[in-house]
Amino acid sequence: MKDFPDGQLFSASGLLVMGKHVITDPWMIAGVMLLITFLAAYLTALSWADLSFVLPATAPGYIVTLLLSKFYLGESISPARWAGTVLIVLGTFLVARTYQPSSSTLATGKTGHEGFHETLAKPTTDALGDSR
């Protein structure tokens, strides 16, 4: 989007030009494709495992961003950021050890008829349990 000239953005012709730019610029296309890939992988992961597992387990993405900005953009990395990297690795390692297929007792859409809130309204006896 940085390639796109400022101004005239909100006129009708400006929007048309921007629309053309968005669907023809290779960087924009690559970006949108990567975002779609992210969404597909994220949804698949959520269908397999708990949200409380998937979220911290994907935190190493921050480290990838850090390394890309160091080697691709040539940014320098402060000691605080290296410390953050170590903590993310450590935290992700801990979370990874807790992997189990979905523990949520609301999960696995048994009937597909009851709504979220109805399900929440009647807590099951094993709501706190993990085993299944």
Binding site: D50, L51, S52, F53, L55, P56, A59, Y62, A83, G84, T85, V86, L87, I88, V89, L90, G91, T92, F93, L94, V95, A96, R97, T98, S102, S103, S104, T105, L106, A107, P123, A127, L128, G129, D130
Partner: peptide, 19 residues
């Protein structure tokens, strides 16, 4: 979501948050 969050997972999530 009534997920089971063990102590280890809590510790991991907190450390990741800090990181």
């Amino acid at each position: 979501l009534r997920e089971h969050v063990s102590t280890t997972r809590w510790a991991g999530a907190s450390i990741v948050c800090l990181g």
